[in-house]
Structure formats: structure tokens, C-alpha cells
Design a protein around this nucleic acid. Structure first.
Lengths: 190, 190
DNA sequence: CATTTACACTAGCGCTTGCTTGGTTACTTA
DNA sequence: TAAGTAACCAAGCAAGCGCTAGTGTAAATG
């Protein structure tokens, strides 16, 4: 078995798995379905992954790592005002949400299928991402851009953003940036 | 088989099923687990429900009907201003979300497990509920209470509200009404 | 040239799944 | 007291599940 490496083959298989997990749900996706989508037989799958659980963990890790990278890049290359940073985070969130849509849908809706070990490991990644949000929101509160409880405000914002995967149509007239700007405009105290 | 009636026994079984579906997810909940939780044998389950699908549909129907009832009652017994109605809808949404939490979590996160027939039937119920929201939000926009695109605003609000099931702790210091008021305060243009 | 590595294959084991069958029990009604 | 009905059970079937064992082969490596 090809333990925990990041071969290009494995990356491609992870991408295909994410797509199937979104289409069918993790539980209803069988190893035979995964193998067929990948053009191999079900037994061959276990050369690349220890078990089905590890495929799920790989999908979620991939998505979360990308989200972290995009958010960091967005904050670094943006004006140093609280308002600009809030905009940048919202835009970055939706950018990664729809660039790696499959991985993020799996992360959001199949998280509970992770076994405890994988869940613990990936929780750290997600916490790192959420910490960036909390910092930006604290700055926005301190600057008087928004008002309210920091805990509630951040939950509401992330809820509204994450829920977009349930209704947003990438082929429609609006870009993810449009959504981000509209949401920020909606909550700014003016 | 006890076709599609609403016997008290069936109602109680539906309630227990909702709980298990939330704990384990629909796919991982076996008919044997359901039966055990209900204190009967797995074969007996099919006296009350045609198949496993019908249990899922029963859970979701129950929750959606309750939501409709609560929202209607809330709008009828509230001052006739756009702002009061917006408050009332947000409060009603969170009230039913946590009064029938299990049923609503299932409706929100297991909807795709419904077969097409059941999905079509229940979609009508859900559309009726969302139509109430659209009306209230249109009034709020017309009154100048909030600004933005009616479509986006309603999606953002419902997203923020629905996402509360992922983090809200009913045993914490805040009531659902607190949440509703904070959210409305956050989006009002002041 | 010999050996290792990466990747794929076939075949199937052991188990669980949703659901059916054929029948029994407990209660209500005529 | 007889008939009807709702509720239940023991047993098990056919299908499908994740995963393993063992083998073949072509390319990379010593």
C-alpha cells in the first residue's frame, strides 16, 4: 500500500472521490463505484488508500489546506484596513468554496463520517482557518464597522457563506465576489 | 401494513426515527437499529411503514408541517409592521428549529436521500414555507428596513438561521429569541 | 543483469443490509 | 362468543458491502 504519500495519482483519485461523495453521499458511495469512476478494479483502490475512511480524510484535508492557503494569500495582498480585510476574507471564502466545491461540500456535510482519529487531526486545520476569521471580525468590531456579539456575528456570517453551496449557481449572472460584497454590505453598520 | 395513517403509535415511532437519523445519519441507521430503539423487532417495523424511505418522508413531513403552523401563528399574532413581522419570522424559525430539532436537522441534511416521489410532494410544503419568508422580506425591503437584492438577502438570512443547528447550544446562556433578535439587528440598516 | 517498486488484476470471504414470509398474540366490536 | 384488526415475532433470503490474499507486469533502480 501506498502509505499516506501525495502522489499525483492519489491526488487525482481524491478529486474523483470528492465528486462522487457529493453526488451520492459518503455512505452510499461504494468502493466499487469509486474504482469504476477511477478506471480500475475495486481491489486496486486499496493500493492507494488504507481504507474508505482514508479517502474521506484525504478529500477533506485537501479542501481545508486550499482554504487556508487562499485566505492567507488574500489577507497578505490586501489593504491594511479592517474593512478591506473583511471584504478579502469573505471573497476568499467564497472563492475557495466554489473553486474546490466538491471537497468543501464533503467537508461541510460529511464531517461526521470521519473516524475520531482523522477528525482530531483535521479539526486542527479547521481551527486554524476559523482563527483567521475571528481575528478579522474582532478588528471589524473594534473599528466600529459592525456591531454585536463577536461570537454570534462570526457564526452568522460563516453560516450565510457556507449555506451558499446549497443554492448558488455558478452559471448564473452573479460571481462569488458579487455575493461576498452583497453580504458584507448587508451587515455593515451604515 | 398500516398505510399512511397517522396513528399515535406511528407518530411516536417517527419521533424516535428522527432522533436516530440525527445521531447516525439516515444511511447508517439500519432498520434493526430503528426497531430496537422502538422496542420491537425489525420485521414489525414494516407494519407501520411501507419501507425505510417512508420513515424518512414521515420525519421530514412532520417537521415541515410544524414549521408552517408556527410561522403562520407568529405572523397572525404580531403587530402589523414590517419590522415586527421580520422579527416574528426570525423568532418563529428558530423556535421551530429547536422545538423539533431532530426533524429539522433531518430535513436540512438528509433531504437528498428522499426518493423523487416523496421529494416532489415535500417540496410543495417547503415552498409554501419559503413563500412566507419572501413576502416578509419584500415588505422589509419596501419599508427601507434593509437594503440589497431580495433574492440574496433572503438566502443569506435563511442560511445564517439554518446554520445555527450546527453550533447553537440550547443549554447555553442564550435563548433562540436572543439569536433571532441579534441577527435582525445585524442586518437592519441604521 | 538482478532486484525492487508501483500499480493493477482476479477471486472471493465474512458480514450486514432492506425487506419478506408465515404465523401468533392482544384487544375491540358485533 | 365469534369475528375482525392492529401489533408483533422468528426466521431467513437475495443482494450488496468493505476489504483481503495472492498474482502478474512493466518501469525504475542497484
Amino acid at each position: 500500500m501506498n502509505v499516506m504519500n501525495a502522489s499525483p495519482r492519489r491526488k487525482e483519485l481524491t478529486r474523483l472521490a470528492a465528486q462522487l461523495f457529493v453526488q451520492e453521499g459518503f455512505d452510499r458511495t461504494t468502493v466499487r463505484m469509486l474504482a469504476q469512476e477511477m478506471g480500475i478494479k475495486s481491489g486496486s483502490l486499496f493500493h492507494h488508500f488504507k481504507d474508505k475512511q482514508e479517502i474521506l480524510a484525504a478529500v477533506i484535508e485537501e479542501g481545508t489546506q486550499n482554504a487556508l492557503g487562499i485566505a492567507k494569500a488574500a489577507l497578505q495582498s490586501c489593504p491594511d484596513s479592517a474593512e478591506a480585510r473583511l471584504h478579502a476574507m469573505a471573497r476568499a471564502h467564497l472563492e475557495t468554496l466554489f473553486a474546490d466545491r466538491n471537497a468543501h461540500v464533503v467537508a461541510l456535510f460529511e464531517w461526521r463520517r470521519l473516524d475520531p482519529a482523522a477528525s482530531a487531526h483535521l479539526s486542527h486545520l479547521r481551527d486554524a482557518y476559523e482563527a483567521m476569521w475571528v481575528e478579522v471580525i474582532d478588528d471589524a468590531l473594534a473599528a466600529g464597522l459592525i456591531h454585536g456579539d463577536r461570537f454570534l456575528v462570526s457564526r452568522f456570517i460563516l453560516g450565510a457563506l457556507n449555506w451558499t453551496v446549497r443554492w448558488y449557481d455558478p452559471n448564473g449572472p452573479r460571481t462569488p465576489d458579487d455575493l461576498a460584497d452583497e453580504l458584507v454590505a448587508m451587515i455593515l453598520s451604515r
